[in-house]
Design a protein around this nucleic acid. Structure first.
Lengths: 336, 336
DNA sequence: TCAAAAGTGTTATCCTTACACCCATGT
DNA sequence: ACATGGGTGTAAGGATAACACTTTTGA
């Protein structure tokens, strides 16, 4: 079995060559919210995720990604997971600009701190700057009405036979009048906005959209190429995963308080949680242990400093932090 | 923004060309277990998954996959989801045999029936022929002792400092003495066996393994290239997903009985479930509705024929069939 | 009459959620 | 004193898991 028969893959000569771009969504949590590391190479264009092409020197896809991230941001990543491979022939301009085909593979990386770093073109941004409608921590976000208006127009102008299906898609993704907000559907929401043309990159890509370019939502920042799509994928994946795997801890410092942990989960999920129940849930699952130390920088009574019980990663099916509880309805903005 | 600056990807001239293989794990459930569609092209070599290279004519990755599956098996797929992209430089022989680099993208497809089909080189096989240690429906599988023996040897001969970590990995993946069998870890188990060299393809690939080629477990069938790895990925993914999404129904005929549904879930998960509780769980979640018809072919009292409530796909966060319940301990083989 | 499968009832237990309330610290 | 956050108690309701038991068919 050393010499296989005829080679299975056709060779990709010249203009049919395939390029694979490896892109990283590097996430951290700051005291006031989720952060993602982007590179602003050129002030006239949107920022980009750390990324680079797969090259022969890379032994594995993940190794290639780590190499690019290290080169571009100075970060030596810890937790990394593959998100998805995108290969639509016409999805974004840079994919069409070169001969051959471009495929992009998105990765999610979690780091402990948004610490300062050497490279000055990369910076930490709140991910809600790219998806402001995803932040429900203080109630329904203000921009939601703009978004819903755009969608309502698209539904209203639907041909008879498509009306129902558009309504359903919108209802599932964005909920009706604030009920049933499902935070995991971040990707579906973005894809819907892209399809409708409510997001500027849809026009940049030359997609045939219902909405005119002027209708695009500019209150949210965009990213180069398909990087906002990859970021949406990362948010959806992470929001799903925190519920059944103890991944939040990859984002925490070695020692932390209950409230800091809760704020981290809230930052990712974009919803508020019930304090007392959250504590007990985490405690009860044996995810953390007391360090004995206390923090007096909390603003109130000093808090116990906790540490993640690394052992749970090896136990049966280490569960997550159980998110579902509360405050998903469209209450008006409340100060925290 | 129509003309981007310098192209970001280096061109892949000649021998650095990248080939992308699209491979499909097509799953069905028969009355006695899970089935996967494979192609036996040559009796002297292992079977392969339906697959083919990404070509310029394919608009999207998924479209390319559907095209190849249609050509090779005659199936027009319904439910399809991307699993993972593999790109290890030296993982399998066919990837090394050709110039340039090979990347493979695995997909999972679910079909209603393992019906007969035109193409005679493809056939339905139980997925437990490839992973006999994964079938716990009638208690601990017989082959498990062989597998555990191999792993025990690998642990016993570990250098002092690595001993503990090998023990932990084995315990998490395969459980201790029958306790804590986690059916979702099918991929981790396969990867461990590959790494140790207890699986023949590890030697075929020329990986540096602990176990000699003769120690490989031959009671299980292999597949070409990295296809067994892709199949393991599919099993793990599906076993996880049935718990929180109603995907089993993609495998069921339009009308089915409670027991048939239970057998399907058991086939996928590889464990037995508690009948009465399973029924109520499914009923209670509103996943099915009565058709009014009865089936008298059950061998006992006639059963109500049910239909999947398609609407739940659009409801909040349609949940799965809730699997965890029972019989995970290493009871000896029991006739059913 | 028996085997096989369908289907119902009941109970103990645990988890979830919500609400109320007290504690310790800094300003 | 009071604001801020830390932390505990508890009770209602729901879901789960185990057990026992009845019903309806075909052989």
């Amino acid at each position: 079995m050393t010499r296989p028969g005829p080679p299975r893959g056709r060779s990709n000569a010249g203009k049919d060559a395939i390029t694979v771009e490896l892109a990283a969504v590097i996430v951290a949590v700051a005291s006031d919210g989720p952060r993602v590391l982007v590179r602003q190479l050129d002030t006239s264009r949107p920022a980009a995720l750390p990324s680079g092409p797969l090259e022969p020197r890379h032994r594995t896809l993940e190794a290639g990604l780590r190499t690019w991230v290290e080169e571009q941001t100075g970060y030596d990543l810890g937790y990394v997971e593959q998100l998805y491979s995108f290969g639509d022939a016409n999805r974004h301009a840079s994919a069409r600009a070169q001969p051959g085909r471009m495929l992009s593979i998105g990765y999610l990386a979690l780091v402990h701190e948004s610490k300062p770093h050497g490279m000055d073109e990369s910076e930490w941004r709140s991910w809600y700057e790219f998806f402001p409608w995803e932040d429900w921590r203080t109630g329904a976000p203000a921009i939601l009405s703009t978004v819903r208006d755009g969608i309502a127009g698209w539904i209203a102008e639907a041909p008879r036979d498509e009306r129902k299906s558009r309504e359903e898609r919108a209802r599932v993704a964005f909920g009706v009048a604030g009920e049933h907000w499902n935070e995991e559907l971040a990707l579906e929401r973005y894809e819907l906005l892209y399809e409708i043309g409510l997001v500027p990159e849809a026009h940049r890509d030359g997609a045939a959209c219902w909405a005119p370019r002027e209708a695009a939502i500019m209150e949210a920042d965009s990213l180069q190429a398909d990087h906002r799509r990859i970021l949406a994928t990362a948010i959806s994946r992470l929001r799903g995963k925190i519920k059944y795997r103890p991944v939040v801890f990859e984002l925490m410092p070695p020692r932390f308080t209950f409230l800091a942990l809760q704020r981290a989960v809230e930052a990712l999920a974009g919803v508020e949680l019930h304090k007392a129940n959250f504590r007990r849930l985490v405690e009860h699952q044996g995810l953390v242990e007391d360090t004995g130390a206390m923090s007096s920088k909390t603003g109130g009574r000093p808090a116990r400093l906790l540490r993640f019980r690394r052992e749970v990663l090896l136990e049966r099916s280490a569960s997550g932090v159980g998110l579902p509880p509360v405050r998903r309805s469209a209450t008006p903005q409340r100060p925290r």
